[in-house]
Design a protein around this nucleic acid. Sequence first.
DNA 1: CTTCTGAGTGCACGCATGTACACTCATGTA
DNA 2: TACATGAGTGTACATGCGTGCACTCAGAAG
Lengths: 230, 230
Amino acid sequence: MNSRSEALPPNERTLTLRDERKLRTRQALLDAALTLMGQGRSLAGISLREVAREAGVVPTAFYRHFRDMDGLGLALVDDVCLTLRKLMREARVAAQGARDVAIQTSVQGFVGYVLANDRAFEFLTRERFGGRPAVRQAIAREIRYFVAELANDVRVVPPFAAMPSDDLEMIADLVVHTVLNLSADLLELPSGQRVREHELTARTIKQLRLIFLGAAQWRSDRGAVPLGPI
Amino acid sequence: MNSRSEALPPNERTLTLRDERKLRTRQALLDAALTLMGQGRSLAGISLREVAREAGVVPTAFYRHFRDMDGLGLALVDDVCLTLRKLMREARVAAQGARDVAIQTSVQGFVGYVLANDRAFEFLTRERFGGRPAVRQAIAREIRYFVAELANDVRVVPPFAAMPSDDLEMIADLVVHTVLNLSADLLELPSGQRVREHELTARTIKQLRLIFLGAAQWRSDRGAVPLGPI
DNA sequence: CTTCTGAGTGCACGCATGTACACTCATGTA
DNA sequence: TACATGAGTGTACATGCGTGCACTCAGAAG
Protein backbone atom coordinates (compact mmCIF):
# COMPACT_ATOMS: atom_id res chain seq x y z
CA MET A 1 0.00 0.00 0.00
CA ASN A 2 0.86 3.66 -0.43
CA SER A 3 3.95 3.17 -2.46
CA ARG A 4 5.11 5.13 -5.55
CA SER A 5 7.92 6.21 -3.23
CA GLU A 6 10.16 7.81 -5.83
CA ALA A 7 11.31 10.49 -3.39
CA LEU A 8 9.15 13.33 -4.65
CA PRO A 9 7.59 16.12 -2.55
CA PRO A 10 6.40 13.72 0.15
CA ASN A 11 3.19 15.59 0.93
CA GLU A 12 1.95 14.93 -2.58
CA ARG A 13 3.40 11.63 -3.59
CA THR A 14 3.07 9.22 -0.71
CA LEU A 15 -0.43 8.71 -2.09
CA THR A 16 -1.20 6.64 -5.13
CA LEU A 17 -3.47 8.11 -7.77
CA ARG A 18 -6.15 5.74 -6.56
CA ASP A 19 -5.92 6.79 -2.92
CA GLU A 20 -5.97 10.40 -4.01
CA ARG A 21 -9.27 9.86 -5.83
CA LYS A 22 -10.70 8.01 -2.87
CA LEU A 23 -9.82 10.93 -0.63
CA ARG A 24 -11.50 13.26 -3.08
CA THR A 25 -14.74 11.27 -2.94
CA ARG A 26 -14.53 11.18 0.82
CA GLN A 27 -14.14 14.94 0.89
CA ALA A 28 -17.07 15.26 -1.50
CA LEU A 29 -19.23 13.30 0.96
CA LEU A 30 -18.16 15.48 3.90
CA ASP A 31 -18.79 18.57 1.79
CA ALA A 32 -22.18 17.32 0.71
CA ALA A 33 -23.21 16.80 4.33
CA LEU A 34 -22.07 20.31 5.21
CA THR A 35 -24.00 21.73 2.25
CA LEU A 36 -27.18 19.87 3.17
CA MET A 37 -26.99 21.31 6.67
CA GLY A 38 -27.64 24.76 5.31
CA GLN A 39 -31.14 26.13 5.98
CA GLY A 40 -31.04 24.83 9.53
CA ARG A 41 -31.15 21.09 9.10
CA SER A 42 -29.24 18.86 11.47
CA LEU A 43 -27.35 15.65 10.68
CA ALA A 44 -30.19 13.65 12.23
CA GLY A 45 -32.51 14.94 9.53
CA ILE A 46 -30.26 14.05 6.62
CA SER A 47 -30.22 10.60 5.07
CA LEU A 48 -27.27 8.62 3.84
CA ARG A 49 -28.84 8.56 0.39
CA GLU A 50 -29.18 12.32 0.34
CA VAL A 51 -25.51 12.77 1.13
CA ALA A 52 -24.51 10.31 -1.56
CA ARG A 53 -26.80 12.00 -4.09
CA GLU A 54 -25.38 15.46 -3.28
CA ALA A 55 -21.85 14.08 -3.59
CA GLY A 56 -22.69 12.60 -6.99
CA VAL A 57 -22.14 9.03 -5.92
CA VAL A 58 -24.30 5.93 -5.59
CA PRO A 59 -25.63 5.23 -2.03
CA THR A 60 -23.67 2.03 -1.48
CA ALA A 61 -20.41 3.82 -2.29
CA PHE A 62 -20.91 5.67 0.99
CA TYR A 63 -19.91 2.51 2.87
CA ARG A 64 -16.44 2.54 1.31
CA HIS A 65 -15.75 5.61 3.45
CA PHE A 66 -17.94 5.54 6.54
CA ARG A 67 -19.70 2.84 8.54
CA ASP A 68 -22.85 4.97 8.80
CA MET A 69 -24.01 8.57 9.29
CA ASP A 70 -22.55 8.58 12.80
CA GLY A 71 -19.15 7.83 11.32
CA LEU A 72 -19.61 10.66 8.82
CA GLY A 73 -20.43 12.96 11.72
CA LEU A 74 -17.31 12.04 13.67
CA ALA A 75 -15.14 12.47 10.58
CA LEU A 76 -16.74 15.86 10.04
CA VAL A 77 -15.79 16.93 13.56
CA ASP A 78 -12.19 15.83 12.97
CA ASP A 79 -12.00 17.44 9.56
CA VAL A 80 -13.50 20.75 10.63
CA CYS A 81 -11.57 21.00 13.89
CA LEU A 82 -8.25 20.15 12.26
CA THR A 83 -8.57 23.15 9.96
CA LEU A 84 -9.76 25.23 12.85
CA ARG A 85 -6.85 24.35 15.12
CA LYS A 86 -4.38 25.09 12.39
CA LEU A 87 -5.82 28.53 11.75
CA MET A 88 -6.09 29.30 15.46
CA ARG A 89 -2.44 28.38 15.86
CA GLU A 90 -1.52 30.78 13.05
CA ALA A 91 -3.57 33.52 14.69
CA ARG A 92 -1.74 32.85 17.94
CA VAL A 93 1.68 33.14 16.30
CA ALA A 94 0.66 36.37 14.61
CA ALA A 95 -0.57 37.68 17.97
CA GLN A 96 2.81 36.95 19.60
CA GLY A 97 4.42 39.27 17.08
CA ALA A 98 2.08 42.15 17.82
CA ARG A 99 2.10 42.54 21.60
CA ASP A 100 -1.00 43.72 23.37
CA VAL A 101 -3.53 41.97 21.20
CA ALA A 102 -6.50 44.04 22.24
CA ILE A 103 -9.72 42.20 22.94
CA GLN A 104 -11.42 44.15 20.22
CA THR A 105 -8.97 43.10 17.54
CA SER A 106 -9.14 39.44 18.53
CA VAL A 107 -12.93 39.37 18.59
CA GLN A 108 -13.26 41.15 15.27
CA GLY A 109 -10.79 38.72 13.79
CA PHE A 110 -12.79 35.84 15.17
CA VAL A 111 -16.02 37.24 13.74
CA GLY A 112 -14.48 37.46 10.32
CA TYR A 113 -13.24 33.93 10.64
CA VAL A 114 -16.63 32.57 11.69
CA LEU A 115 -18.41 34.29 8.82
CA ALA A 116 -15.79 33.09 6.35
CA ASN A 117 -16.14 29.49 7.59
CA ASP A 118 -19.82 29.61 8.34
CA ARG A 119 -20.56 26.07 7.21
CA ALA A 120 -18.02 24.60 9.60
CA PHE A 121 -19.23 26.67 12.53
CA GLU A 122 -22.84 26.01 11.69
CA PHE A 123 -22.14 22.30 11.84
CA LEU A 124 -20.33 22.55 15.18
CA THR A 125 -22.98 24.80 16.70
CA ARG A 126 -25.83 22.62 15.52
CA GLU A 127 -24.35 19.29 16.58
CA ARG A 128 -22.69 20.45 19.79
CA PHE A 129 -25.87 19.81 21.76
CA GLY A 130 -28.27 18.60 19.11
CA GLY A 131 -26.22 15.77 17.69
CA ARG A 132 -25.89 12.11 18.50
CA PRO A 133 -23.92 11.35 21.69
CA ALA A 134 -20.71 10.31 19.96
CA VAL A 135 -20.60 13.51 17.92
CA ARG A 136 -21.46 15.64 20.94
CA GLN A 137 -18.64 14.08 22.92
CA ALA A 138 -16.16 14.65 20.11
CA ILE A 139 -17.09 18.33 19.92
CA ALA A 140 -16.98 18.69 23.71
CA ARG A 141 -13.46 17.27 23.67
CA GLU A 142 -12.37 19.80 21.06
CA ILE A 143 -13.79 22.66 23.12
CA ARG A 144 -11.98 21.43 26.23
CA TYR A 145 -8.82 21.40 24.15
CA PHE A 146 -9.34 25.03 23.15
CA VAL A 147 -10.02 26.03 26.76
CA ALA A 148 -6.83 24.35 27.94
CA GLU A 149 -4.83 26.00 25.19
CA LEU A 150 -6.22 29.43 25.95
CA ALA A 151 -5.46 28.93 29.65
CA ASN A 152 -1.88 28.13 28.72
CA ASP A 153 -1.58 31.12 26.42
CA VAL A 154 -2.70 33.72 28.92
CA ARG A 155 -0.58 32.26 31.70
CA VAL A 156 2.23 34.65 30.77
CA VAL A 157 0.28 37.92 30.79
CA PRO A 158 0.06 40.11 33.92
CA PRO A 159 -3.23 39.46 35.70
CA PHE A 160 -3.09 35.71 35.10
CA ALA A 161 0.50 34.94 36.01
CA ALA A 162 0.77 33.04 39.29
CA MET A 163 -2.93 32.26 39.32
CA PRO A 164 -3.90 28.70 40.29
CA SER A 165 -4.47 26.47 37.27
CA ASP A 166 -8.04 25.81 38.36
CA ASP A 167 -8.94 29.47 38.31
CA LEU A 168 -7.17 29.98 35.03
CA GLU A 169 -9.18 27.21 33.41
CA MET A 170 -12.37 28.56 34.91
CA ILE A 171 -11.69 31.94 33.33
CA ALA A 172 -10.61 30.45 30.01
CA ASP A 173 -13.82 28.42 30.03
CA LEU A 174 -15.86 31.56 30.58
CA VAL A 175 -14.06 33.36 27.76
CA VAL A 176 -14.37 30.51 25.28
CA HIS A 177 -18.06 30.01 25.95
CA THR A 178 -18.75 33.72 25.69
CA VAL A 179 -17.08 33.72 22.29
CA LEU A 180 -18.89 30.55 21.21
CA ASN A 181 -22.10 32.22 22.21
CA LEU A 182 -21.28 35.08 19.87
CA SER A 183 -20.56 32.66 17.08
CA ALA A 184 -23.92 30.94 17.56
CA ASP A 185 -25.74 34.28 17.53
CA LEU A 186 -23.93 35.41 14.40
CA LEU A 187 -24.88 32.28 12.51
CA GLU A 188 -28.51 32.80 13.41
CA LEU A 189 -28.51 36.12 11.52
CA PRO A 190 -29.97 35.88 7.99
CA SER A 191 -26.56 36.88 6.57
CA GLY A 192 -25.82 40.42 5.57
CA GLN A 193 -27.23 41.95 8.74
CA ARG A 194 -24.10 44.02 9.27
CA VAL A 195 -25.66 46.34 11.84
CA ARG A 196 -26.98 43.63 14.12
CA GLU A 197 -23.73 41.80 13.53
CA HIS A 198 -21.83 44.74 14.89
CA GLU A 199 -24.14 45.05 17.89
CA LEU A 200 -23.52 41.44 18.82
CA THR A 201 -19.78 41.87 18.39
CA ALA A 202 -19.80 44.99 20.55
CA ARG A 203 -21.75 43.19 23.25
CA THR A 204 -19.25 40.35 23.33
CA ILE A 205 -16.32 42.74 23.46
CA LYS A 206 -17.89 44.42 26.46
CA GLN A 207 -18.51 41.07 28.10
CA LEU A 208 -14.88 40.07 27.67
CA ARG A 209 -13.69 43.41 29.04
CA LEU A 210 -15.91 42.89 32.04
CA ILE A 211 -14.50 39.41 32.51
CA PHE A 212 -10.93 40.69 32.40
CA LEU A 213 -11.88 43.46 34.79
CA GLY A 214 -13.16 40.79 37.16
CA ALA A 215 -10.06 38.68 36.62
CA ALA A 216 -7.85 41.58 37.61
CA GLN A 217 -9.71 41.76 40.93
CA TRP A 218 -9.85 38.02 41.43
CA ARG A 219 -8.40 36.55 44.59
CA SER A 220 -8.55 32.77 44.62
CA ASP A 221 -8.87 32.46 48.40
CA ARG A 222 -11.97 34.67 48.41
CA GLY A 223 -13.53 32.60 45.66
CA ALA A 224 -13.52 29.21 47.36
CA VAL A 225 -16.82 27.39 47.20
CA PRO A 226 -17.63 25.29 50.28
CA LEU A 227 -19.07 21.87 49.62
CA GLY A 228 -22.49 22.42 51.11
CA PRO A 229 -24.85 19.46 51.40
CA ILE A 230 -23.59 16.77 49.02
CA MET B 1 -67.89 25.45 22.93
CA ASN B 2 -66.49 25.42 26.44
CA SER B 3 -69.76 25.62 28.26
CA ARG B 4 -70.97 23.67 31.32
CA SER B 5 -70.72 27.06 33.01
CA GLU B 6 -72.52 26.17 36.23
CA ALA B 7 -70.28 28.49 38.25
CA LEU B 8 -67.98 25.86 39.69
CA PRO B 9 -64.23 26.30 40.39
CA PRO B 10 -63.61 28.02 37.05
CA ASN B 11 -60.16 26.55 36.55
CA GLU B 12 -61.69 23.09 36.41
CA ARG B 13 -65.10 23.52 34.90
CA THR B 14 -64.84 25.87 31.99
CA LEU B 15 -63.81 22.76 30.06
CA THR B 16 -66.22 20.10 28.93
CA LEU B 17 -65.38 16.49 29.67
CA ARG B 18 -64.57 16.08 26.04
CA ASP B 19 -62.14 18.98 25.87
CA GLU B 20 -60.53 17.73 29.04
CA ARG B 21 -59.84 14.35 27.45
CA LYS B 22 -58.53 15.99 24.33
CA LEU B 23 -56.13 18.00 26.44
CA ARG B 24 -55.02 14.83 28.17
CA THR B 25 -54.20 13.17 24.85
CA ARG B 26 -52.38 16.28 23.74
CA GLN B 27 -50.33 16.20 26.92
CA ALA B 28 -49.64 12.50 26.36
CA LEU B 29 -48.23 13.33 22.94
CA LEU B 30 -46.01 16.09 24.34
CA ASP B 31 -44.90 13.76 27.12
CA ALA B 32 -44.19 10.97 24.67
CA ALA B 33 -41.96 13.26 22.61
CA LEU B 34 -40.08 14.31 25.74
CA THR B 35 -39.63 10.68 26.75
CA LEU B 36 -38.34 9.66 23.34
CA MET B 37 -35.74 12.41 23.49
CA GLY B 38 -33.99 10.60 26.30
CA GLN B 39 -30.70 8.91 25.34
CA GLY B 40 -29.66 11.86 23.29
CA ARG B 41 -32.07 11.84 20.40
CA SER B 42 -33.31 15.08 18.89
CA LEU B 43 -36.77 15.92 17.57
CA ALA B 44 -35.45 15.60 14.03
CA GLY B 45 -34.71 11.93 14.67
CA ILE B 46 -38.14 11.09 16.04
CA SER B 47 -41.06 10.20 13.80
CA LEU B 48 -44.67 11.21 14.12
CA ARG B 49 -45.61 7.54 14.32
CA GLU B 50 -43.18 6.92 17.13
CA VAL B 51 -44.69 9.73 19.18
CA ALA B 52 -48.20 8.45 18.57
CA ARG B 53 -47.14 4.90 19.48
CA GLU B 54 -45.49 6.07 22.72
CA ALA B 55 -48.59 8.08 23.57
CA GLY B 56 -50.78 5.02 22.98
CA VAL B 57 -52.68 6.54 20.10
CA VAL B 58 -53.07 5.80 16.42
CA PRO B 59 -50.80 7.87 14.08
CA THR B 60 -53.61 9.77 12.39
CA ALA B 61 -54.91 10.97 15.76
CA PHE B 62 -51.76 13.08 15.97
CA TYR B 63 -53.26 15.47 13.42
CA ARG B 64 -56.15 16.34 15.72
CA HIS B 65 -53.57 18.16 17.89
CA PHE B 66 -50.67 19.29 15.74
CA ARG B 67 -50.15 20.06 12.08
CA ASP B 68 -46.86 18.15 12.05
CA MET B 69 -43.75 17.51 14.14
CA ASP B 70 -42.75 21.17 13.85
CA GLY B 71 -46.04 22.10 15.48
CA LEU B 72 -45.41 19.59 18.24
CA GLY B 73 -41.99 21.16 18.79
CA LEU B 74 -43.38 24.67 19.09
CA ALA B 75 -46.07 23.50 21.49
CA LEU B 76 -43.37 21.78 23.53
CA VAL B 77 -41.43 25.03 23.81
CA ASP B 78 -44.53 26.85 25.00
CA ASP B 79 -45.50 24.10 27.41
CA VAL B 80 -42.06 23.72 28.94
CA CYS B 81 -41.32 27.45 29.16
CA LEU B 82 -44.68 28.24 30.72
CA THR B 83 -43.90 25.93 33.64
CA LEU B 84 -40.41 27.29 33.79
CA ARG B 85 -41.47 30.93 33.92
CA LYS B 86 -43.97 30.19 36.65
CA LEU B 87 -41.37 28.49 38.82
CA MET B 88 -38.78 31.17 38.17
CA ARG B 89 -41.29 33.79 39.23
CA GLU B 90 -41.89 31.90 42.47
CA ALA B 91 -38.15 31.68 43.06
CA ARG B 92 -37.91 35.42 42.50
CA VAL B 93 -40.64 36.16 45.03
CA ALA B 94 -38.99 33.88 47.56
CA ALA B 95 -35.70 35.67 46.94
CA GLN B 96 -37.26 39.06 47.64
CA GLY B 97 -38.17 37.83 51.11
CA ALA B 98 -34.64 36.73 51.96
CA ARG B 99 -32.42 39.69 51.09
CA ASP B 100 -28.89 39.07 49.89
CA VAL B 101 -29.59 35.97 47.84
CA ALA B 102 -26.03 34.79 47.62
CA ILE B 103 -24.84 33.60 44.24
CA GLN B 104 -24.09 30.21 45.69
CA THR B 105 -27.61 29.67 46.97
CA SER B 106 -29.19 30.71 43.69
CA VAL B 107 -26.95 28.49 41.59
CA GLN B 108 -27.42 25.49 43.83
CA GLY B 109 -31.15 26.03 43.68
CA PHE B 110 -30.98 26.22 39.91
CA VAL B 111 -28.96 23.01 39.74
CA GLY B 112 -31.56 21.19 41.77
CA TYR B 113 -34.26 22.56 39.53
CA VAL B 114 -32.50 21.48 36.34
CA LEU B 115 -31.93 17.97 37.64
CA ALA B 116 -35.53 17.71 38.81
CA ASN B 117 -36.82 18.84 35.39
CA ASP B 118 -34.14 17.20 33.33
CA ARG B 119 -36.43 16.22 30.45
CA ALA B 120 -37.57 19.78 29.91
CA PHE B 121 -34.06 21.19 30.03
CA GLU B 122 -32.73 18.39 27.85
CA PHE B 123 -35.30 19.31 25.24
CA LEU B 124 -34.47 23.02 25.38
CA THR B 125 -30.71 22.41 25.32
CA ARG B 126 -30.94 19.98 22.44
CA GLU B 127 -33.27 22.03 20.24
CA ARG B 128 -31.87 25.46 21.07
CA PHE B 129 -29.29 25.17 18.31
CA GLY B 130 -29.98 21.75 16.87
CA GLY B 131 -33.67 22.15 16.15
CA ARG B 132 -35.65 23.33 13.17
CA PRO B 133 -35.58 27.11 12.63
CA ALA B 134 -39.05 27.79 14.04
CA VAL B 135 -38.27 25.92 17.24
CA ARG B 136 -34.87 27.59 17.57
CA GLN B 137 -36.45 31.01 17.22
CA ALA B 138 -39.08 30.23 19.82
CA ILE B 139 -36.42 29.16 22.31
CA ALA B 140 -34.25 32.18 21.52
CA ARG B 141 -37.23 34.42 22.26
CA GLU B 142 -37.75 32.76 25.63
CA ILE B 143 -34.09 33.24 26.52
CA ARG B 144 -34.25 36.90 25.56
CA TYR B 145 -37.26 37.18 27.83
CA PHE B 146 -35.30 35.71 30.74
CA VAL B 147 -32.38 38.04 30.08
CA ALA B 148 -34.65 41.08 30.09
CA GLU B 149 -36.32 39.94 33.27
CA LEU B 150 -33.02 39.36 35.05
CA ALA B 151 -31.82 42.79 33.94
CA ASN B 152 -34.93 44.29 35.48
CA ASP B 153 -34.52 42.35 38.69
CA VAL B 154 -30.96 43.40 39.42
CA ARG B 155 -31.63 47.02 38.55
CA VAL B 156 -32.36 47.73 42.21
CA VAL B 157 -29.22 46.24 43.76
CA PRO B 158 -26.12 48.38 44.44
CA PRO B 159 -23.61 47.88 41.65
CA PHE B 160 -26.23 47.86 38.92
CA ALA B 161 -28.38 50.80 39.93
CA ALA B 162 -27.93 53.76 37.61
CA MET B 163 -26.17 51.63 35.00
CA PRO B 164 -27.22 52.20 31.38
CA SER B 165 -29.82 49.67 30.21
CA ASP B 166 -27.51 48.47 27.46
CA ASP B 167 -24.81 47.51 29.91
CA LEU B 168 -27.31 45.92 32.25
CA GLU B 169 -28.63 43.72 29.45
CA MET B 170 -25.11 42.86 28.40
CA ILE B 171 -24.33 41.66 31.93
CA ALA B 172 -27.64 39.83 32.29
CA ASP B 173 -26.92 38.12 28.98
CA LEU B 174 -23.53 37.00 30.22
CA VAL B 175 -25.03 35.66 33.46
CA VAL B 176 -27.87 33.81 31.78
CA HIS B 177 -25.60 32.18 29.23
CA THR B 178 -23.10 31.17 31.89
CA VAL B 179 -25.89 29.48 33.80
CA LEU B 180 -27.30 27.85 30.65
CA ASN B 181 -23.85 26.55 29.98
CA LEU B 182 -23.85 24.90 33.39
CA SER B 183 -27.23 23.37 32.68
CA ALA B 184 -26.00 21.89 29.41
CA ASP B 185 -22.92 20.45 31.09
CA LEU B 186 -24.98 18.94 33.90
CA LEU B 187 -27.30 17.18 31.50
CA GLU B 188 -24.35 15.66 29.71
CA LEU B 189 -23.35 13.82 32.91
CA PRO B 190 -24.51 10.18 33.00
CA SER B 191 -26.70 11.00 36.03
CA GLY B 192 -25.52 10.30 39.53
CA GLN B 193 -22.06 11.81 39.03
CA ARG B 194 -22.43 13.89 42.16
CA VAL B 195 -18.73 14.76 42.42
CA ARG B 196 -18.37 16.05 38.87
CA GLU B 197 -21.71 17.73 39.31
CA HIS B 198 -20.35 19.66 42.25
CA GLU B 199 -17.20 20.60 40.35
CA LEU B 200 -19.26 22.08 37.54
CA THR B 201 -21.45 23.95 39.99
CA ALA B 202 -18.43 25.33 41.82
CA ARG B 203 -16.91 26.46 38.54
CA THR B 204 -20.06 28.33 37.59
CA ILE B 205 -20.30 29.96 41.00
CA LYS B 206 -16.76 31.21 40.58
CA GLN B 207 -17.53 32.49 37.10
CA LEU B 208 -20.53 34.42 38.36
CA ARG B 209 -18.49 35.88 41.23
CA LEU B 210 -15.89 36.98 38.74
CA ILE B 211 -18.58 38.55 36.58
CA PHE B 212 -20.02 40.49 39.52
CA LEU B 213 -16.50 41.53 40.50
CA GLY B 214 -16.09 42.90 37.00
CA ALA B 215 -19.50 44.55 37.11
CA ALA B 216 -18.56 46.37 40.31
CA GLN B 217 -15.57 47.87 38.49
CA TRP B 218 -17.47 48.56 35.30
CA ARG B 219 -17.55 52.10 33.93
CA SER B 220 -19.72 52.41 30.87
CA ASP B 221 -17.71 55.23 29.32
CA ARG B 222 -14.54 53.14 29.44
CA GLY B 223 -16.27 50.21 27.81
CA ALA B 224 -17.44 51.90 24.64
CA VAL B 225 -16.64 49.99 21.50
CA PRO B 226 -15.80 52.20 18.51
CA LEU B 227 -17.34 51.22 15.22
CA GLY B 228 -14.19 50.31 13.34
CA PRO B 229 -14.46 49.41 9.66
CA ILE B 230 -18.09 48.53 9.01
C1' DC C 1 2.16 -8.30 -19.80
C1' DT C 2 -0.60 -10.48 -16.44
C1' DT C 3 -2.80 -10.67 -12.27
C1' DC C 4 -5.04 -8.75 -8.25
C1' DT C 5 -7.44 -5.13 -5.67
C1' DG C 6 -11.00 -2.37 -4.34
C1' DA C 7 -13.72 2.17 -5.39
C1' DG C 8 -17.81 2.90 -7.47
C1' DT C 9 -22.18 0.68 -9.86
C1' DG C 10 -26.96 -1.26 -10.37
C1' DC C 11 -30.54 -3.84 -8.67
C1' DA C 12 -33.32 -5.76 -5.38
C1' DC C 13 -35.52 -6.28 -1.00
C1' DG C 14 -38.09 -5.44 3.23
C1' DC C 15 -39.43 -1.90 6.21
C1' DA C 16 -40.99 2.49 8.36
C1' DT C 17 -42.73 6.56 7.30
C1' DG C 18 -46.36 10.60 6.35
C1' DT C 19 -50.81 11.16 5.09
C1' DA C 20 -55.57 10.42 2.72
C1' DC C 21 -60.04 8.60 3.52
C1' DA C 22 -64.10 6.56 5.37
C1' DC C 23 -65.46 4.90 9.78
C1' DT C 24 -67.42 4.79 14.85
C1' DC C 25 -69.57 6.15 18.67
C1' DA C 26 -69.15 8.83 23.15
C1' DT C 27 -70.33 13.24 24.28
C1' DG C 28 -72.28 17.94 23.83
C1' DT C 29 -76.38 20.64 22.22
C1' DA C 30 -81.07 21.92 21.66
C1' DT D 1 -85.09 12.46 23.07
C1' DA D 2 -82.99 13.21 18.63
C1' DC D 3 -79.40 15.18 16.15
C1' DA D 4 -74.64 17.07 15.34
C1' DT D 5 -69.86 17.09 16.46
C1' DG D 6 -65.30 15.66 16.40
C1' DA D 7 -61.59 12.71 18.93
C1' DG D 8 -59.81 8.55 18.00
C1' DT D 9 -59.76 4.20 14.71
C1' DG D 10 -58.39 1.09 10.76
C1' DT D 11 -57.06 0.45 6.22
C1' DA D 12 -54.45 1.64 2.40
C1' DC D 13 -50.84 3.54 -0.49
C1' DA D 14 -46.83 5.76 -2.44
C1' DT D 15 -42.35 7.18 -1.16
C1' DG D 16 -37.80 7.05 0.63
C1' DC D 17 -35.00 4.67 3.45
C1' DG D 18 -30.73 1.41 4.87
C1' DT D 19 -28.34 -2.25 3.24
C1' DG D 20 -27.02 -6.94 0.93
C1' DC D 21 -24.99 -8.78 -3.23
C1' DA D 22 -22.95 -9.56 -7.61
C1' DC D 23 -20.86 -6.65 -10.96
C1' DT D 24 -17.16 -3.77 -13.56
C1' DC D 25 -13.00 -2.15 -14.81
C1' DA D 26 -9.20 1.58 -13.69
C1' DG D 27 -5.06 1.22 -11.90
C1' DA D 28 -1.58 -0.75 -8.52
C1' DA D 29 1.63 -4.68 -7.99
C1' DG D 30 4.72 -8.17 -9.56
